[in-house]
């Protein structure tokens, strides 16, 4: 049993994408997007790690005096200064 119509359409798709290097353009765009995502992920981890060093979040939260927006603001300001944004 073969998904003939699907296979045929996939072939049509690749024939179309091979014209004018469309496939290569698409893949290049994907690589850039993936790189951004990786960078974002790394930065988020760094950010989170830093936030943890400045606040014992779980403990603050348990004591009901943890305001996430204040913590975020402080942390952002610190990063802006650090990286001279």
């Amino acid at each position: 049993m073969v998904f003939l119509a699907v296979i045929q359409t996939i072939e049509n798709f690749f024939n179309h994408m091979h014209e004018n290097n469309r496939l290569s353009q698409k893949r290049k765009a994907q690589v850039v997007s993936h790189f951004k995502q990786l960078l974002q992920h790394e930065w988020m981890q760094l950010f989170w790690k830093n936030l943890h060093t400045n606040h014992d979040i779980e403990q603050d939260f348990l004591q009901h005096d943890f305001n996430p927006y204040t913590a975020l603001k402080t942390e952002k300001e610190r990063w802006y200064k650090l990286f001279k944004f």
Binding site: M1, F3, A5
Partner: peptide, 26 residues
């Protein structure tokens, strides 16, 4: 889309004994 491909809708079945699609609405 950016790559000028017009999306297609097709029918499919994996238990059709002939394994052939009844339609391909290109």
């Amino acid at each position: 889309n950016l790559y000028a491909w017009k999306p297609r809708a097709v029918c499919a079945s994996s238990i059709n004994p002939d394994g052939i699609f009844s339609s391909n609405t290109n």
